[in-house]
Every structure is written in C-alpha cells, then in structure tokens.
Design a protein around this nucleic acid. Structure first.
Lengths: 232, 232
DNA sequence: ATAATAGTGTCTATAAGACATTATGTA
DNA sequence: TACATAATGTCTTATAGACACTATTAT
C-alpha cells in the first residue's frame, strides 16, 4: 500500500486498561483493590485491570469489563471512562498509558465472591493512605472520587451503588456517604420524581419506624442530568 | 525479574492521539481538519494527531500539543481530554485506540498560519456532512461538540475562543454560536462578575453604539464551574 | 434627533434548603 | 404511650430569564 504508515517503526507505548470500582458499604465509600502478584510493584495493591487482548476484546470497554469480571464475577451496574494517565516515569518498564474506567456496583451483588478470593478486597477510601499502592493509582482513585462526587450533585448515578430495590433512606445514605455531607431527604424525593427514572415497587420494608416505600430503576432508562447541583 | 509481565507476548493495539480543535469564526463553530496524505483514508480529512513519540513526548498531552503545533504553530488556549475511542474495526490496520483531546483557540491567533498551509483548514460544523472524513472522526467531532455545549452551560470556557481582550458582546456571540440559541446578555454579565476570573481592561472599543468595555482573563486563574446551567 | 449597541434595574420563575407537621410502623 | 423513621407541606433563598430603562457613541 502506498504511503502505508508502518507502525513497527515506532516504539509503542505500553497500553493498559484499569478500573476504579466504587461501592458504598456500611456508610463508607470503598474501592476494589487487587493484590499484585507480578512486577512491577508485586505485593502492592493496585486497580483491577490489565492489557487489551485484541483477539477477544472488541474494544477497550470490554477489556475493562473482562478484567472486572475476573475479580467480581459480574459486570458493574455503571461504567464510564474516567481519563487516561500517561507518562514516561509512571511505570519502570517505560512510557505507559493507562485508560481508567470509573464504575459503580451494589456491594451485595459481589460480597460473597469478594469474600472467597484473597487477592481482591474493598478498601475504605479513608484508609487508603495506609495501604501500599502501586503506580499512581492512589492519585487516580482520588480523581475518580472527585468525579463521583461531582456527578452525585447533578445526577442520580449513586443509585448504581444500591440493590435492585431500594428505599429513599438508603439512597440518601449513599449520596451522603459519597458527598461527605448531609443532604435533605426532601431534595432526593423531589429528584426521584423529577428524573422519571424510577418506579415504585408494590412493596414496603421495615425501617425502624413507618414502613418505607421501595423503588427500582425503570428498565432501559438513561441517566438524567439535572440543571442544578445540590449545594456544595 | 520474577513474574515479569512480558509485553512482547501481546499484540499491542495501535495507539494514537487526536485533537478536536474548535474555534468560532464569523458566528460559526468550526473545527480544524487536516487532509490525510497517507493510508488509511489518504485524501480524506481527519483530526490533527498521530502516534506518540516516546523519545520526545513526556506524556500523551504533549503528543496532542506537538501535533496541534505542527498545524497551527501555537498551543491552544484550552486543552482537556475528551474520550478514548477504540475497536477492532475502526482502523483497517487492526485494533486501534485513539485518545481524543478537546481544544479551543481564538481564530485570530492562528488565522495567518492556517492560511499559509494547504493541508489544514477550518471546517464549519454545519458543513461537516459534505466532507469526506476519515475513520469515525465525524462521530467523535459530534461528541466533542456536545461536550463543548454542555460545558458552555455551566462554565466560562467559551472565553478560550476569544482573543486576549474581549467585550461582553463578543463573549455573548461565542456562547450563542456554541449553544445554537440566544442567551441573555445580563446572564453573561452576572457570570463574568460572579466567576471572578476576569478583570476590566483600561480601554473601551467601538461597537456601533456606546463604547464597549474590554475584559481579559486574570492571570493563572482556574475555570469556575457554576452550580446551575443556563437554560436549555 | 435617530439609531445602535452597552450596561443597569428589577420583577418573575424555578428548584434547592430548611424545617415543621403528619403518617405509620415497633417496642 | 413513646419513639423512630417515612413522607408531605410550605416558607425561604439563590440564581437565571425577561425585559424595560438609561447611557453613550456615530451619523
């Protein structure tokens, strides 16, 4: 082919796909970390991820899902691209590029699986400083957390940390955990109504007081973005 | 090294960096396109970009800047990551990954340079359908445009399509061009004051009526995000 | 004086915050 | 009955939209 651009002339950067999978468990924001068995940073904890397998992955989103499934056994309820991190110094093997995904899941969906493996576990974001972490993953997790906090202000994505059926009280707790501050129950109810993403389940559950209405996400709805943030 | 992960075992995906550089010129939103001289898609128009040169690029942001500088001679006033696009079918050479940046520049900064080269030109977004475009770049440009519109609702980034000194009237025109609908002059003035990103220049310019106050961006300020969108 | 654009004043509309009130469950 | 949590009602607050009004320039 004339003018064919021969890629073998170029040193290709190392390309990997990692994911920051968040959940809310016992009123704490947690992130899934994996104990590394191979160099570099063997023995330290890092984000679940790895290399693209061009023979089985149709695109890099599938790489992220495949690697997450290896650790959790299921696909996350929410997945979007966060950012790409790159540099000549972030990996001792040379110039590296990591595409990082940002994911949410209900803890109950994966708790039994996580409990059975010993190389993956939920790390409380407030205890991340104590953990020996590989690469720049601590920094990446902080950026992912900021994105999550921002999105929690103008969208309902925190619902993807909840089980299929959930109450307003549970929703409130998840949002408050993510934001690190209280929000008005009334504001959440108003948004549940305005978003038109949710429907009442014909069932109520105990709550310590009056029975609480259960809600679920309507099938095949998209995330609604509000025009205003909750107050910061 | 024990457990060293040998990357030569893996077929590495093709990794490139492209940029969607927008400007506003004569009341129209335009994007910088480059005529491709090499395969694939030789002769078609594509986004400015190319392969990382790991010997001279410290990170992929520098790749984007280097490639843009080749076409415009200057660095854009605003640059951020848009998204990564990937797939086994988007490039005939095989599985490819493109990290796309999203950039803004004042047209006056580059007009003379663009005029001297014949492989790069500004394409009106409304005339993009007529142009033979390489890869999935048409789709990518549409997504970049959506991001720009969204950001114009809650931030002042459209200012990066303006020259160093600008009037409220010019700012208004740029925002309206990006959003494709009129906005209240008053709303812009309110945000200019609230953002605390701008300062008055001790100079006014002709406008067809009363002289218009010039503004400029304060040095080293960050972009302010508002808690509310302009109305959609 | 007239037209044109800049800039201000101010009323309305919308959605979030605050918080009192009512509802309904358990101990 | 006491208490706890759910759910509603409603007043306040903040900021954008609408638009009238004033200011200043050129012709």
């Amino acid at each position: 082919m004339a003018n064919h651009y021969d890629i073998t002339e170029y040193k290709n950067p190392l390309f990997t796909v990692d994911s920051v999978l968040f959940t809310v468990q016992e009123g704490a924001l947690k992130v899934l970390m994996v104990k590394r068995t191979s160099e570099p940073f063997a023995g330290r904890w890092g984000l679940p991820g790895g290399f693209v397998n061009v023979d089985i992955d149709d695109n890099v989103g599938m790489t992220a899902l495949r690697k997450l499934k290896e650790k959790t056994s299921v696909a996350p309820q929410y997945l979007e691209q966060l950012q790409t991190y790159s540099g000549v110094n972030r990996d001792p093997r040379g110039f590296s590029v990591t595409l990082v995904y940002f994911a949410l899941i209900a803890e109950a969906q994966v708790s039994t699986h996580i409990a059975t493996v010993d190389d993956a576990k939920w790390i409380d974001l407030n205890k991340l400083t104590e953990l020996p972490v590989a690469f720049d993953h601590k920094f990446i997790i902080e950026q992912a957390k900021e994105r999550l906090k921002q999105k929690a202000l103008y969208s309902m994505i925190p619902v993807y940390c909840l089980p299929e059926h959930f109450t307003v009280g549970q929703f409130k707790l998840v949002i408050e955990t993510i934001l690190g501050k209280p929000v008005q129950r009334k504001s959440i109810i108003r948004r549940i109504e305005a978003a038109d993403m949710f429907e009442k389940v014909d069932e109520k559950v105990k709550s310590g007081g009056r029975l609480a209405q259960l809600y679920k996400v309507k099938p095949d709805v998209d995330i609604v973005n509000f025009e205003r943030n909750l107050s910061v």
